[in-house]
Structures are given as C-alpha cells and as structure tokens.
Amino acid sequence: MNRMVLIARAVITDSIRRRVPYVIVLFAGALAAAIPSLPNYGMGVEPAVFREVSLALMYVAVIVLALALAANRLPAEFERRTVYAVLAKQVSRWEYLVGTWAGLTVVMTAVIAAFTVVIQVVAVLFYGDPMWVLWVGALSMLLEAGVVIAVAVAISTLMGPVVVVVATLTILFIGHSRSTLLGGLGAAELSYFYPSLDSFNIMLPVAHGNGVSALAVVSMLTVFVGFTGLALLLGVVMIGRKDL
C-alpha cells in the first residue's frame, strides 16, 4: 500500500511539472468566461445553456487531458527503462500499474475541481448564482476520467501512445453508442450486456433539470467501479506477462 502511494506521488509530481494541465485549464477557463457574452438573442445566454455549454467544454478538456497524461506514461517508462529500478525493488507489477492509475486520477481530480471553480466564478459574475449543481456534473466527469485513464493505462502496457489514444477513444465511443448501435437492431435484451457508459450522461439533467437522482449517482459509481476494475485487471494481467 505504502509503495503504491509512493508511485502515485511520483506520477503526480511528474504530471504537475508538465505544462499540459495548466494550458488546458487556462484555455478552457477563458472559453467558459466567453460563453455568457455569446450573442444569443441579443441578451446573452440563459443560465441553463451556460451550464450545458460549459459542462460540454469541460468534458472535452477532461478527456483530452486524461489521454494526454495517461497514453504515454507507461510507454515512456518502458522505453527509457526507468521502470527497471522501480520494479527491481520489492514492488509488484500490479502495485506499479494501480499506483500509476491512482496518481493520474488524483491529478484529474484537482484539474476538474479547479475547472468547476472557474465556471462557478464566471456564473457568479454573470448570473449572480454559484450553480452548485455543477459539482454533480464534475463528479460524473471525474468518474468517467477514471475509467478513461484505467483503459488507457491498461492498453499502454502493450501498445504505444498512438494506439492507446485511438483504442481508448474507440472504446469511449462504443460506450456511448448503445442506443445508436442496438436501437436499429431491435435487440432490447442485448442492451443489458452492452458495455455502456451512458450512466455518465447527466449533463442535460444537470444543466436543465432539478439535479440528479440518488439512483443515477449510484448507477454512475457502479459503472465506474466495474469498468475501472475490469480495465485495471486486464492491465495487471498484461503487464505481468511482459518482458521488460
């Protein structure tokens, strides 16, 4: 446990040192600030539309950043052989993999929190409303980022960064396409077995509705635990069989 924390900490320091997180947060923050002044019906954007657009913006930024941090993390360690000195210690490969995932997820937590605060500040300035419901959207994004990182890290045990990005985006796309892919087939029974990430789709209720039900949050957590666990498990099996 202790060793996993050490590895996660090393991943965090390394990510903080990189410029990507700041660039993305700054860029997206600037965009969020620009949303309220979009020329919509000549009187600015409605609060609900502001929430929807800023959450969508945040979603894209989060996925891009998660992939930017995760896709090359392990491949670079393998290629530069920095992994030898770590795994020659009393560290298991699963601790190394899960520690890497945990470190990256902590970084994403910080970024998402910073992001949400930026949007809240904009909301207070333009609408006089802190829009606390945004945090539910932030939670769904954090959980989805956790899944994306787990999938990317698992694939990166065997593949290079380009393959990792393409494969992870494909899985993400399939995960959100249940209705498109199964709808036409009329195969409703199959939908229970479909590896769906739709539980994370709460942007619209957050933006336009009265928030999200407890059941939706539980369902989100379940999907997160299931997908992350499965991806990390596969990653552990794959890294365990690898010749370094």
Binding site: A10, D14, R80, R81, T82, Y84, A85, A88, K89
Partner: peptide, 12 residues
C-alpha cells in the same frame, strides 16, 4: 533483500 543496478541506468 536485493539492490539492483540496471545496465546503463536511467532515471526521471
């Protein structure tokens, strides 16, 4: 109880 020096070691 092992300490290991890899060939041409490299660190972050």
């Amino acid at each position: 109880s092992l300490g290991f020096l890899p060939e041409q070691p490299y660190f972050p």
